[in-house]
Computed example of a mutant assay.
Amino acid sequence: MPLSFEFTARKLVYGGEALGHYQGRVVLVPRALPGERLEVEEALTAKGVIHARPLRILEAAPERVEPPCPYFGRCGGCQYQHLRPELQSAAKRETLRETLRRIGHIGTATWDAEIPVHAAHPWNYRNQAQLKVALQPDGKVRLGFFEAESHRLVPIDACLILSPRLNAILADVRGADWSKRLAGVAPFSEIELLADDRDEEVSITLRGSFDRARAFDDQGWSGLAEECLRLLPGVTSVAIERGRAFRVFGKPALSYAVGDFRYQVSHGSFFQVSRFLLPELVTAATSGGVDAAPANRDALALDLFAGVGLFTLPLARGFGQVIAVESNPRSAADLAANAQAHG
């Protein structure tokens, strides 16, 4: 029988869990806040650390709020909705500071600069989603996200942090008609969505395992891609990915504008998800280097894990040479295309 005990949360750590101790051992509990007392139950002990699940709150922190999402606590996507939105960024800043000190050995004696907080509207901010797909015994398809630390699906109707366009597509594809369409071409396990900067155009990637009994150009898959383009509002590009096989229908890539630059983002390329903060992120990441570069532009900048060139292009305005490093072949191809398009 699992061990239950009283737990006092001391601080938040990376991933949103609260850290405390029980009988001299470290305990990590999700959905708890510093200063709270809870009754918890041991879920797993690994490397001497007790991972516990909360059973009931004995004494709540004043910062606690009722999570607005009905799936919070089951869905593994969000970790901080029980904390007031204006305090979430501050909590993450302190977690970063502690991580730098504990892992990077960067303390106040080495670096004591203020870590600025960048925050935007807390809802509908994501321009991307990776919806998991599961075929149920009744033959219907369910869409949603995995539980935390699990491959169990949590079916969802809508997600409060996805953009309106992505939620509209989710509402369509979880309907009965689309359930039949998706079930007819199973197996596939994920639907990845990316919306552009205007939240108007969307690219969809359908990922699944390779079925040797069915040719890649089987009309079930091709027909599904064409129906996505024809019936789902805003969808302009669809990719079918089955094992190593890959095929794109409609536009080859999405176009995403950030500031003065427009980026080509293909299926499978990495791109930042926080659509409200993207211009501010680019400025924060590049302005210091550009401002400090010599006036004669005789300087070199390195952009590691460059993706499609989100920082590379702005850096090129202030440096004589920018070397961008990216290992993902699709991202690297977009990076080259974006660099060429902007001279």
Rank of each mutant, 00 (worst) to 15 (best):
Y256G: 01
V290G: 02
P314L: 06
V235C: 04
V238C: 03
R275A: 13
G289H: 06
L315I: 05
F305D: 03
A253M: 10
Q272N: 09
D298E: 15
L254H: 05
Q272L: 13
A316N: 06
D303L: 01
L302Y: 11
L304R: 10
R275M: 08
T312V: 05
G243Q: 02
Y256T: 07
I323M: 05
A299N: 09
Q264H: 07
G259A: 04
P279G: 10
V248P: 02
L302E: 09
F311N: 09
T312I: 07
A295P: 01
D260R: 09
A295H: 03
A293V: 06
A293K: 04
A301S: 04
V248Y: 00
A239S: 14
G250T: 00
G259S: 02
S274I: 09
A284D: 11
A245K: 14
L310F: 10
L277N: 09
S274K: 12
G243T: 02
L315R: 02
Q321P: 03
G318E: 04
P233D: 15
S266P: 10
A253E: 14
L313G: 02
A301V: 09
V273S: 15
A316G: 05
F249D: 12
N296T: 07
I240M: 15
A316L: 07
G259Q: 08
V290T: 03
G318T: 03
F246A: 02
F271L: 13
R242S: 14
I240W: 15
P252F: 05
V265P: 10
G318P: 01
G288D: 06
D303F: 01
G320D: 10
L281Q: 11
A301E: 12
T283L: 14
S237V: 08
L313W: 12
G318W: 01
G268I: 13
Q264V: 12
A292G: 00
F270D: 11
P294W: 11
T283I: 10
